[in-house]
Nucleic acid binder design. Structure first.
Length: 355
DNA sequence: AATTTCCCCAACCGCGAAGTT
DNA sequence: TAACTTCGCGGTTGGGGAAAT
């Protein structure tokens, strides 16, 4: 219960380790092993606290530590495990031999997290970001319908919950888009849209994905039926205007590794019509799970995941809001779909400032 | 060449869980 | 059972190198 006494008060050394200190620690552990970190520094002749010694050993000096860049496979594994475990870095590290939790955490925060954000994916929930997603659908569905929009109503949320910056941007974009529309032939614009479509590779484990999606929908329907109805109505409008979704065209090839994010099917069965539909050009490609609505003749979008997990809150390991069984074993993880779906984020949305 | 900004990552900090007395 | 100690985890920081200006 109680807190450990602070080492600072004993005048112990802090900061970077010297080679000499490293060697002392290595020598001691090789001889005696690491049992009691509390007494180890004294016994090893180090002016460090036990905590610091443990950290130095586990994160740096341990002989089985793998150094160097993360491989693509390791990166893929991290993303998959993170989608299941959340920020359980030690658990993730346990499945990546030679990698430490600290290293994985750092790599996540400096590389993977940023990339997901760039792609419009919430790195916490691994879902498309609600704000960007809905802004996109609102823009699309409203362009041809009304001259006045009420974003809060469309979103089905209280006005105070909507980022005012988003509203401002949306309104601004809406008005500029309307001006354009008056000067352009509608059919010509439709043709442009059809050229900006989403590309699907293959669907892996389709049935599992559909089942998961169904469970998510049932749960969310039970808790927020009116909200779901509102979302589905809104999204149906959107997807009806974007029926080019189901193209089988292969993705363009000028993509770098940085552009790809593999996503496990069983966890992303709800990715559905998350794409923007009316983009006027795109240079960002996101790899998404192909399952969802693409297998659904109605093209309905499931907002279950978006609604069930707050985009800014940590994903609980055993959340009641999901039917995912967290006792996932290796074989289940390995069964994740590695096929990828890409969708494009329209350039019109400069999302950088919202990241 | 000098300065500033950005980025990475080793290390620290605080907290809670588990273990011990 | 309470008080205390130890350990381990996740979040955060800051030093230093690289890149940009």
């Amino acid at each position: 219960m109680g807190r450990a006494p602070c080492c600072d008060k004993n005048g112990l050394k802090k900061g970077p380790w010297t080679q000499e200190e490293d060697q002392k620690l290595i020598d001691y552990i090789q001889k005696h092993g690491y049992g009691n970190w509390r007494t180890l520094p004294n016994n090893a002749g180090l002016q460090r606290c036990g905590k610091s010694c443990r950290l130095r050993w586990t994160n740096y000096l341990r002989p089985d530590i793998k150094r160097g860049r993360f491989s693509f496979e390791e990166e893929e594994t991290i993303i998959q495990l993170h989608s299941i475990l959340g920020n359980k870095w030690s658990a993730i590290a346990g499945r990546l031999p030679g990698r430490t939790d600290n290293e994985i955490k750092n790599y996540w925060n400096t590389h993977i997290r940023k990339r997901l954000l760039r792609m419009g994916i919430d790195p916490v929930t691994h879902s498309p970001r609600l704000d960007l997603l809905d802004l996109s659908s609102i823009l699309s569905s409203s362009l041809y319908n009304s001259s006045q929009i009420n974003i809060s109503r469309l979103l089905g949320v209280q006005p105070t919950l909507v980022n005012p910056e988003l509203i401002r941007l949306a309104t601004s974009l809406m008005s500029s888009q309307r001006d354009q529309d008056q000067n352009q032939n509608y059919h010509a614009q439709q043709n442009v849209q059809h050229q900006q479509h989403h590309q699907i590779n293959q669907i892996c484990n389709q049935q599992e994905a559909e089942e998961f999606q169904y469970q998510q929908q049932q749960q969310i329907m039970g808790h927020h039926p009116q909200v779901v109805e509102q979302f589905q109505t809104n999204f149906t409008n959107f997807s009806n205007q974007n029926d080019h979704w189901q193209s089988n065209e292969m993705p363009s090839s000028n993509l770098t590794r940085e552009d790809y994010v593999p996503i496990p099917t069983s966890h992303y069965g709800y990715y559905g019509g998350s794409s923007s539909g009316s983009g006027s050009g795109s240079d960002q490609t996101v790899v998404m799970d192909p399952s969802i609505s693409l297998t659904n003749s109605n093209n309905n979008f499931s907002f279950a995941s978006v609604l069930s997990t707050p985009s800014s809150s940590p994903t609980p390991l055993n959340s009641n809001s999901t039917t995912y069984n967290i006792s996932t074993e290796d074989h289940e993880i390995e069964s994740y779909c590695s096929e990828m779906l890409k969708f494009e984020i329209q350039d019109i949305l400069d999302v950088g400032e919202f990241m």
